[in-house]
């Protein structure tokens, strides 16, 4: 009888030790990461307005850092070969030099990659302007079969398993990766991409030596009533965010804005791009069909091709060779070569 009781006691002890052991192990394994919301202060250039930040996605250091990591990580593509930075290359003002973006398996996208600098100011995304914010935009390239080709559901599974992301999503959002917090993190990082310290900016901030005489002549021409470049490429970001047909073609293969509106008056209209950092974001136009700034100036000088939807502002400019060179030189002054370096590391 005594032996039997001892056996029972022994079994109970073993069971208790097992339970305590399992509990301690579980506690040890459970990292209790608390959400942090350290405000991220944007470094806005003096001549720039405040950036509109959606109330549902305030900038925090934790979200920006998570977004930065996601932006440079090919984990976002189905075969882990393409990251956002594959097309939005920091050294090329977060654009690239391909006529049209290259996605997974070398697939050629529909359009030229735009710069992401100052994208947080954009009132809409994509060349048809139908995407209202960065949060909504983020999903498109990730899932598009010609870009990253990864299902959002599969992406979240990858992120949940990844030690860094598992921890950083908890830190930034207090929860595991979801579609909502994934897009918010990337949007936060993209809003930090600001370029506003080019030679031109230094000049308008009072450094009269920041521009050469040729660049100053180019600036005068650019803002002149004769050329009217700034009618569309005006404002702090050198775009009015409008849609224009510049007469690039008589017949447009890519119908542009009309793709969304189905309005024939919108055929060939594309969003007016920013000219900031334009000298390094070649090739140009919606399809990268013009290789150099010289090609672009020649195109505008000729007044574009005949097209019923062509903007009335596009007409022959009768520029002299010196004026063409001055204009190009001025456009070059809008580039901020080293702006990208601060985005490579946290």
């Amino acid at each position: 009888m005594g032996t039997f009781l001892n056996s029972i006691r022994c079994l109970l002890n073993k069971f208790l030790i097992y339970i305590i052991g399992v509990s301690l192990f579980s506690i040890a394994c459970k990292e209790n990461i608390k959400k942090r919301e350290t405000p991220y202060i944007l470094d806005i250039p003096d001549a720039f307005p405040e950036m509109p930040i959606p109330s549902h996605n305030p900038l925090t250091v934790e979200k920006v850092e998570l977004g930065r990591k996601l932006f440079f990580d090919p984990i976002l593509s189905v075969d882990s070969t393409i990251s956002c930075a594959s097309c939005h290359i920091p050294q090329i003002a977060f654009a690239d030099h391909e006529p049209q973006a290259k996605g997974i398996h070398g697939k050629i996208g529909m359009r030229n990659t735009p710069t992401l600098y100052n994208i947080g100011y954009a009132p809409y995304l994509f060349m048809e302007g139908k995407v209202p914010d960065l949060e909504t935009q983020v999903i498109a390239p990730v899932q598009h079969e010609e870009e990253m080709g990864l299902n959002l559901r599969d992406l979240l599974k990858r992120l949940e398993k990844h030690p860094y992301y598992k921890k950083q999503f908890q830190l930034a959002f207090g929860e595991k990766p979801t579609p909502g917090n994934f897009v918010r993190a990337l949007a936060c990082f993209e809003r930090t991409l600001i370029s506003g310290n080019s030679s031109y900016d230094q000049y308008i901030n009072g450094d009269t030596n920041a521009l050469t005489a040729q660049q100053k002549l180019g600036m005068e021409l650019f803002f002149s009533e004769r050329l009217q470049c700034s009618k569309c490429h005006g404002g702090f970001n050198f775009t009015n965010y409008g849609f224009e047909n510049i007469g690039l073609y008589v017949h447009y293969e890519d119908i542009g804005l009309a793709r969304a509106t189905a309005d024939t008056n919108d055929i060939g209209k594309f969003k007016v791009p920013t000219l900031r950092n334009i000298s390094i974001t070649y090739p140009y136009m919606h399809n990268g069909s013009l290789q150099t700034l010289n090609d672009v100036i020649e195109f505008y000088n000729e007044g574009g091709k005949k097209n019923p939807n062509k903007s009335s502002l596009i007409k022959p400019l009768k520029l002299s060779e010196a004026e063409k060179k001055a204009l190009i030189s001025f456009l070059e002054s809008l580039t901020e070569e080293q702006a990208y370096t601060k985005y490579l590391q946290p």
Partner: peptide
Amino acid sequence: PANFMYWSWNP
């Protein structure tokens, strides 16, 4: 949108 029944370029 994971169901691919969503136009992401024209929401």
